[in-house]
Write a protein that binds this DNA or RNA. Structure first.
Lengths: 196, 196
DNA sequence: TGAAATACGGAGGTGCCCTCCGTTTATCAA
DNA sequence: TTGATAAACGGAGGGCACCTCCGTATTTCA
């Protein structure tokens, strides 16, 4: 009775919008406190809605996380253009990788984003994942064009390596310094291979 | 009534030894098939013992994984001495990192080993984790002494980066080539910083 | 205003974690 | 050999989380 090209869509219900917003707020809080593996029932409780409501709005855990962190990853993508415009290609790349690490380690839930970089099979991150890929590809390509580095690696792998630092670096106090050191080393490695 | 320095310990019961072995076999099989997050109840079922028996032998999931993979990580440690004896320091390091990646990616359950590299709080891996740390430290130090590289990074971080490749590289077909590329880049980066 | 569309929310089935404890079995002393 | 006893077995059960389903409540629109 409803043809999917049809216009006659109702206005979305007020309670639906309200609950969706509540769930996002609650999820942000709970994920921040407990990490991305927190219980979805706790999220629902915190939001003051039933568990059924949570699942209607976000059919999978991934869908929820995706929604919560879409903003953050958008920010990351936007920062890339600014860096590219204002710095030498290699420095833009270096700085962006630092930003990437910070986002991942602070917003710990964003680690799930990395899973989507894998093969896109959990395709709910597909959007952000693809954008992230485009971003790092872009930055790397810039530096290559400028003759500053050579790449014989898929650029995303640089981010995967950083992901390992976040995942397995667990809470030491020099975490950030260590990540910066790794970034410098990887970039030095890429520079070492540039055409002379 | 039993003083803990006392000798009068009984011979361990035959069924206990048998069940322990069965559990290890079952765990190896189940972890290989389902990954390190497999259900412990399934392990017990596969082993043909009760769940209580599993928990008596291995009080935590970590303890079980540790036991299953202790052999493999021993092998890794042993390989390091051979490589160090037969190759130039940098090549020994390169080759060992390749081995490390292979072990991690094939025996997928070994990823849990990496968690122990963090802060030793889940101290059941403490033994293997500490040995792994000693091993990579040793290989790196050799290369530094030979003047082939300079390090301003904790050596373990190199393995963490590789861990990211395993964790987030999920099943692409060029996984191994990609890891080798990353290893080469990191080593080139370390070489770039060596004293001239 | 009231019918139809939409959303709510929690009960309930499933599966896993881990503990506890009554039953069974292997060891060892007599 | 025998039987007392330490040790091990194994599964029932409480708790928690996942996710589905559907009767009830609310909102929209004609």
């Amino acid at each position: 009775m409803i043809d999917n090209a049809g216009k006659p869509t109702r206005k979305p219900r007020a309670d639906a919008a309200r609950n969706r917003a509540r769930l996002l707020d609650a999820a942000k809080a709970v994920f921040a406190e407990r990490g991305g593996a927190a219980s979805l029932e706790e999220v629902a409780r915190t939001a003051g809605v039933g568990i059924g409501t949570l699942y209607r709005h976000f059919p999978t855990r991934d869908a929820l996380i995706e929604a919560v962190y879409r903003n953050e990853s958008d920010q990351l993508v936007r920062a890339a253009s600014e860096l590219a415009a204002s710095r030498p290609p290699v420095e833009a790349l270096r700085e962006w990788m630092r930003l990437f690490f910070n986002y991942m380690s602070v917003k710990h839930g964003m680690m799930e984003l990395l899973d989507s970089l894998a093969d896109g099979k959990s395709s709910l991150y597909a959007a952000s994942g693809a954008e992230t890929k485009r971003t790092i590809d872009f930055l790397v390509k810039n530096a290559v064009s400028a003759g500053e580095i050579a790449v014989d690696i898929e650029p995303l792998d640089l981010l995967r390596a950083l992901g390992g630092m976040v995942q397995y670096g667990g809470g030491r106090d020099d975490e950030e310094a260590a990540a910066h050191a790794l970034i410098d080393i990887m970039i030095a490695g890429l520079q070492a291979k540039r055409p002379r």
